[in-house]
Nucleic acid binder design. Structure first.
Lengths: 341, 341
DNA sequence: GTATAACTGAGGTGCGCACCTCAATGCAAG
DNA sequence: CTTGCATTGAGGTGCGCACCTCAGTTATAC
């Protein structure tokens, strides 16, 4: 038989098409016996639903929304581009993607925005926002209202019920630690650590992962306290200069935040990049160029395109009441060197 | 308007549905004027084909075939699993995937097998086979017969007309070179290089990439001539023992071939893995475990699951007379350390 | 027993498009 | 003018399934 249809399935199961429909779509009023016979027949004749037909018959448009920060540098731009790209590609798959850019670092504003999302307007929401109790509650309320939520690239620690798309930041920090440790060899020295802010949970976890490796595996190295730039160019220059002057044996720098342009620029002003091993996070036009020209030595990245597509697949699966395929949705921690850009 | 349909498009363009159909599907007998008006209307009303409806109306089953080696170790198993997985997932997308396992290292047998593939049986073929003139000709003939070909994970140098899915092996070798070079630091030493066979083009390119980095960036290191195991455990042990005895200053080992179990086992018998930095290719249960336990230091990998899905997407695009989205189909060279497994 | 609820089947409609036929119109060459 | 060919439109069919209605049947409670 060429690819059995629902009709073939009904025949094989000895029931009517209506019952097959009830079983396949989990509708009520089906006896256990009928359900069992249908499932057995599915196995027996190898029935597989034609998703194209399902989609057409349902004639449903999936509407997903990404809630992203309004302020940022190149990494945010990269993300926006990937979302736009996915939006274009998925239009022919009955999927419409919108983007809201919000001051996600203002919990009040973000909460209000999330509260204003209507259940009827959207089938899933992917939110990228730093952790805060207020935001966590707002996200919880969103889910209570039946809107499927994906925590996008940055998670709330105690919101385990929502899917999370992104890397394990502890592991990412540990990876950075391993690279710096191995690159530096056996000579002792200090490592400068720079972040936009240490309020962000991502940065904290990366730092913890980094420290765990350095302390255990490379005890001759010492990671200095984290410097916070607050995204300010001149502040970054000042605090980095200060640290460089006070420690003559800085052999490496690790930038925790996704936006590395300001920290790296400041570092290159005040330190000899030939001697200092620099590792940053996220691939951006800046970090890519810096790696190419040798200003930095490695990038720890997560592919934003993958992340976007993964978030959409997860929201789509939930909208169809399916389970996402977990294995495929794992975002890899990528290590980029000059040679594998 | 909710999502315009072809009917809306016809109306907007001032032509009939039949003409819209002719334009959308590149059928003959359409005046330039009609075509232009349809395309303008597409832009104007934002028409996007409903792929589900297209698929349903076409009612076409895509049949793709993977031609893979019959002999191999864990990496082959990994690949087979990923293909099987994709096969299961894609069944509901009207895509059927079959696997032929052939002695791909026998050009004669492979050519005969390829020649026997019927145009009617299949919409695309993905072939993983070492380079040889005979195979290249057989692949060429396959394409001449109108069967779309994807070179899967191993390409023929002079067959540029066919798509290739897999990493740039020169870059992969260079990445390995960078890692070993940086991990070893400034002390001089020698690097042992092991391959199953250096006949395979992949190994040759990796070696070239590796040498280019070592020679340019790390002149205090010397890469020894490649050792060939021919997949034989005792032969591997013998030649590696020989090399270890003749060179007392071997500080690293680089395994070029995707199957690393035999070489690494042999190396660990005859060298002190605490002191020797080992880099291998491809993630397998063995290499993963070896990385976890510290027997090896890094894995250069390409995600076989991605590769399989990418090959399928490319064949699918060609079957639909579309162009694949090149950016999405690039397979990354992954660097795996203990921390980002 | 009867009333009620749970189940089942038959049949219809429509999703948006591809693909087909056939008649009608335009247009150019001779 | 006629012939021939390119172009266009009108209309129909079917892909596989979801979703609906309604009549009929069976099980269960009382």
């Amino acid at each position: 038989m060429i690819r059995p249809t629902a009709k073939d399935l009904a025949e094989a199961a000895g029931v009517s098409l209506a019952t097959v429909d009830r079983v396949l779509n989990d509708r009520p009023n089906v006896s256990a016996r009928a359900s069992r016979r249908v499932h057995e027949a599915i196995e027996k004749i190898g029935f597989v639903r034609n998703l194209a037909a399902v989609a057409l018959a349902r004639n449903k448009i999936y509407r997903f929304r990404f809630v992203l920060p309004s302020k940022g540098d190149q990494y945010l731009q990269e993300l926006l581009q990937r979302v736009a790209e996915a939006s274009r590609t998925l239009k022919s798959d009955l999927t419409e993607i919108t983007v809201d850019q919000i001051a996600t670092d203002d919990p009040y504003q973000l909460s209000r925005h999330l509260a204003a999302i209507e259940t009827e307007d959207v089938d899933g929401v992917a939110v990228m926002a730093p952790e805060s109790p207020q935001v966590r509650d707002a996200l919880g309320r969103l889910m209570t209202r039946g809107i499927h939520l994906v925590q996008f690239l940055s998670g709330q620690e105690k919101l385990k019920t929502a899917d999370f798309v992104g890397v394990d930041n502890f592991a990412a920090g540990a990876t950075a630690g391993r690279i710096i440790g191995r690159f530096l060899g056996n000579e002792p020295g200090k490592i400068m650590i720079v972040a936009e802010t240490m309020v962000a949970r991502d940065s904290i976890e990366r730092r913890r992962g980094f420290d765990s490796i350095i302390n255990e595996q490379f005890p001759h190295l010492r990671a200095l306290p984290s410097l916070e730039t607050y995204g300010d160019q001149s502040r970054a220059a000042a605090i980095i200069q200060n640290v460089v002057e006070r420690h003559h044996d800085i052999r490496a720098a690790y930038v925790l935040s996704p936006e590395s342009r300001i920290p790296v620029s400041a570092i290159s002003q005040h330190a000899d990049l030939q001697k200092v091993t620099v590792v940053v996070h996220e691939r951006t036009p800046f970090s890519e160029e810096a790696l190419r020209t040798g200003r930095i030595d490695a990038i720890i990245a997560q592919d934003p395109g993958h992340a976007v597509r993964s978030a959409v697949r997860i929201m789509r699966a939930h909208a169809d009441l399916r389970d996402p395929i977990a294995a495929q949705e794992k975002i890899r921690i990528e290590v980029l060197l000059k040679e594998n850009l």
